[in-house]
């Protein structure tokens, strides 16, 4: 009985043959759908923070500091869901097939895109990133004098202009 089952299992083994992938000298067992680490294209990113708000484990963070805001991606906390790529309005995030991410230092698992911040030309408050400003101008032409204002000053300015009855321009 036992011998019979050994013969049978041998049969199964012979039929299956060698299935081992000789990774790393052979290709890994990846399918075309695999979601690996994300890549943020610094030429496209606006720094709007949509990805930061959707990221479930907070692997993406946007921290303003002095004159810049850094969008940091910590792959060591990423859950590879790819939601950031879906919500990105600038299509700056792509999901790659990269999984060989091991590192001996935790700092090497972080990468960042640094955005210069623009101040309100009237009150001096930090308002948005340079890249987002450019993108907004491109998509909806706003009058030059309004673009560098923070929402509060813009409202104020527009209100004044309207009272003076000169439409959109106050000068």
């Amino acid at each position: 009985m036992v011998k019979l089952s050994i013969a049978k299992i041998l049969q199964i083994a012979l039929k299956a043959g060698r299935v081992t992938r000789k990774y790393p000298s052979e290709q890994p067992l990846l399918t075309p759908e695999f979601r690996g680490a994300i890549r943020i294209d610094p030429t496209k990113c606006w720094g709007c923070g949509a990805c930061v708000r959707v990221c479930p484990p907070n692997a993406l963070t946007l921290t303003p500091k002095d004159k810049v805001a850094t969008l940091e991606y910590f792959v060591g906390r990423c859950i590879f869901c790819g939601m950031c790529a879906e919500v990105c309005p600038a299509n700056a995030i792509t999901v790659t097939k990269e999984f060989e991410l091991s590192s001996t230092s935790i700092e090497d698992l972080k990468s960042g895109v640094v955005h210069r911040l623009v101040r309100c030309s009237s009150c001096g408050e930090l308002i948005w990133t340079e890249a987002e400003l450019r993108a907004t101008v491109k998509s909806s032409p706003i009058s030059e004098e309004y673009i560098t204002l923070c929402p509060k000053c813009r409202k104020l300015k527009f209100g004044k202009a309207a009272m003076l009855g000169r439409g959109g321009s106050s000068e």
Binding site: I12, A13, L30, R35
Partner: peptide
């Protein structure tokens, strides 16, 4: 070993269907 060898096909299928 054989059960897990067979299972690996299901894992590959799952990755192909869903991405992970």
């Amino acid at each position: 070993m054989h059960a897990w060898r067979i299972r690996e096909r299901v894992m590959v299928l799952a990755e192909y269907l869903t991405g992970s």
